[in-house]
Design a binder for these strands. Structure first.
Lengths: 206, 206
DNA sequence: GGGTGACTATACAGATCGGTGTACTTCGGA
DNA sequence: TCCGAAGTACACCGATCTGTATAGTCACCC
């Protein structure tokens, strides 16, 4: 069973509208809780048009996840460009990007995490899991690279710690366990990075 | 609209079976993805019995979340009892408990986080969010207390950092971003706690 | 002017959703 | 011996689910 996700760059006006509306609804209420009828009605479009553009609810879901990730990476790259030289600030700019992103794009945490939460490995979840786990692998890889560039003695371990803080912040945002979790994660990340680099420099001196 | 969640300690044999089966299905496939017919059939019980015992799907969901939390806290307390004296090891025993718990109880991460992910604030989510956010608040409070007991200069901040690492680990477990996230979180937590306490002692000496 | 892609309108299929009504059985305890 | 709780069996409700069918409109473009 194959799936055709339409190219996000060449979407028809109505298709764009459908995707926008679907994104909002999927994010706020959960994917399974939103039916295609609801989406079509909210977009001011017939269900027929929805199926002509996307073929199935599944591919609409994947388009939702991909478009959100695309937008996030754009914001992320803008922040990374502001701190081009390798160092602690460049790693921390990921958290800065996240803080901005979630101030704008809703406060129910990460769409990828949420999507994974309501899908089983088999059946329809078959399409969701590869999508979201790929996104997470990419983020881990980014953290590891940035940690290596700024002189961490063990970029793999430190990169994973950054990832844990990052993911923890996103889920805490959604659960409202406490306020400003992304900023809190940034502070913790900073302390860890500085301690890690300092330790490395001391090792080099001895 | 009120909801009656039956007392988990006095469940009828069949009711216990229904709850067990429902827990497994809810956890693995997601709450919305599992219908009451599926649960009843998997439990070898008629749908009528399910409704006689639980009254609604909602209360069955709440029972699922409560029972899982109840079991988790039991495991947690057993580990806390193993390190009764205040200190770093006592804080870390929370991570030890989690490592054991998730080795046994599935690898799709935290049921509370997952449940939150697929519910909206209003409507049916009305019952889920208070339940899960209460559980998370309890955990944060525990971390803060443990950090205060072991001499952290800022138990609120350190407790929050512990919570971020903890939540990050649970999510990473479900997303399979990398292996052994709970153990990785424990290692990071240990370094942070030690650095924090050391800093405090130095502050006292000066 | 003929073709094409985007879109509307409406109706419907087949399945499944949460939830109920009725009638019957089984079984332990007072 | 009788009562009530627990449970079975099964038909049924209206609503909603994903997805498709027929039929037709409109703008644009070669």
């Amino acid at each position: 069973m194959q799936i055709h996700v339409p190219d996000l760059a060449t979407l028809t006006p109505r298709a764009q509208r459908i995707l926008d509306v679907a994104s909002t609804l999927f994010y706020e209420r959960g994917i399974h809780a939103v039916g295609v009828d609801t989406i079509a009605e909210a977009a001011g479009v017939t269900k027929r048009t929805l199926y002509d553009r996307f073929g199935s609810k599944e591919s609409l879901v994947v388009a939702y996840l991909r478009q959100r990730e695309e937008k996030w990476r754009k914001v992320l790259n803008e922040h990374l460009d502001k701190a081009p030289q390798p160092g602690v600030d460049r790693v921390l700019s990921v958290f800065d990007a996240a803080a901005l992103w979630y101030r704008v794009h809703g406060s129910k945490g990460c769409s990828a995490i949420n999507a994974r939460a309501e899908t089983a490995p088999e059946a329809d979840g078959h399409f969701v899991f590869p999508e979201v786990s790929g996104q997470k692998a990419w983020m881990l890889n980014l953290f590891t690279d940035l940690c290596a560039q700024c002189g961490c003695p063990d970029p793999t371990a430190t990169g994973r710690t950054m990832m844990l803080l990052f993911e923890g912040a996103l889920v805490t945002l959604g659960m409202r366990t406490f306020a400003w979790p992304v900023e809190e994660a940034r502070t913790a990340a900073r302390a860890i990075l500085i301690a890690s680099i300092q330790q490395n420099n001391e090792g080099l001196r001895s």
